[in-house]
Design a protein around this nucleic acid. Structure first.
Lengths: 245, 245
DNA sequence: AGATGTTCGGTTGTCTGACAACATGATTGC
DNA sequence: GCAATCATGTTGTCAGACAACCGAACATCT
């Protein structure tokens, strides 16, 4: 029922559509580095769109470093080494396995953030972290309907840890990662699944991270964060009731 | 003299220029989420460019999730939560501190990759890793002029580790990260600096990672990789001869 | 012959103007 | 009052033109 009123898919815009197709072709290896693209007018007629549309598509690909265009010469598939952006497309969420891989990435970054936070944290970070723990506890006593709040609190907890690390790249990357994971997984069912095994014991895992950061003990923070993510991965892997949407 | 003949900076393209400026304004908080942008014709005249140019700029910002445009309504600064790409601009390399932060990010991801590789690795990965170690050793005996080769071999080593982890997101992200770091730091001087303290002992750090992965011992791989990056960071931090370009 | 200038065709970069698709609010008709 | 309609402003797309630029072939000079 809640699915019936889900957001309707907006018709995609032409440049995005074309950019996606070309990016796919490049990543799949159909177009190889150094290859010269057909001229813009030619490509435009081949795709059946105006040149301005095709230019917008190529502009996006150039932005990510997938294509290199030289005025007066042509456009070429760029060397993979010149890619300048890490992008998480909607294609990443087709299978549960993909989600697990993204969580692994998140885990690595978060653990590093916790380690660094233990030396760079300032008092205001500690207060914010305490707040997150309180929010978790409050959400737990609310039972099932508090599941979403629990997940949000955890995300905020690690965002704060990243902020406390003093490394804005860690912070921004984690933010992108979490937001993408969350925006694709907004179904309450999955939130429930992620939070189902939660209990005061899980809050304890987070508290261990907080305590280590407070005591400025990087090694302990590292271990505590790592332990939490390891257990979280295990909890998620054990659940078989998450549909492979 | 060699500076006089350095590559001349190519004039930037208008859409990129505009996109950069607007992105900067958004990140700096001058434009806040939810704000409505002026209409395209208005913005175009304000920037003094044609609407097609401005549209290409906006197209790039939309691509990263910084702007949300709705036909018939207008364009708005998007919620920060909807950012879909992590981008490493050239601005990241102004100061050595920035480089250190990127290396921290790299470290976290690499350590996670090594941990996972210890369970997912296949025989061909081991062979590739051995090759990298051999390349390092061969570069070391060549002394100074082998410095670039040493750095390349180390990068390839951890790219291979990421590949062995079976997690293509880890692999791709690390690839983007390393390529950006390297492409901005191509000066041989810095390569030398990074490699200056190298010796058979440093190769030993990598060998420890390889052995743990071979023996399928995730904990040992984790510790070995972490130890290496910690020492690498220390080695780099100790050097004061790297100019703050 | 070799180096230097010139022309030419093709490609990307930019500009201009127009129309289509769409959303919102005001107007009209009942 | 209320629904349908229209007017207006915005983004999306299209079409054509010219400018800037590059590479190669050609012409010219020493």
């Amino acid at each position: 029922m809640s699915q019936a009123f889900a957001k309707v898919a907006r018709p995609r815009r032409l440049p995005d559509e074309i950019a996606d197709r070309m990016a796919e072709a490049i990543r799949a290896g159909e177009l190889r580095p150094g290859d010269k693209l057909p001229s813009e007018p030619s490509l435009a007629t081949r795709f059946g769109v105006a040149r301005s549309v095709l230019r917008e598509a190529i502009s996006q690909l150039r932005y990510d470093g997938l294509i290199e265009a030289r005025q007066g010469v042509g456009a070429f598939i760029a060397d993979p080494r010149s890619r300048s952006a890490f992008r998480i497309g909607p294609a990443c969420f087709k299978k549960r396995q993909e989600l697990l891989k993204l969580l692994q990435l998140r885990s690595g970054v978060s653990v590093e953030a916790a380690t660094l936070a233990a030396t760079a944290r300032r008092p205001e970070h500690l207060a914010a972290l305490e707040d997150c723990l309180d929010a978790m506890r409050a959400a737990i006593v609310r039972g099932m309907e508090g599941a979403a709040a629990r997940v949000d609190a955890e995300l905020r907890f690690y965002s704060t840890v990243a902020a406390a690390s003093g490394n804005e790249y860690l912070e921004e990357f984690l933010s992108v990662l979490e937001n993408r994971i969350l925006s694709e997984l907004h179904s309450v069912a999955v939130k429930n699944a992620m939070a189902s095994e939660w209990s005061e014991r899980v809050v304890g895992e987070h508290k261990a991270v907080l305590v280590s950061i407070r005591d400025m003990d990087p090694e302990a923070a590292h271990d505590a964060a790592r332990r939490h993510f390891e257990r979280a991965a295990k909890r998620l892997a054990d659940r078989t009731d998450i549909a492979d949407v």
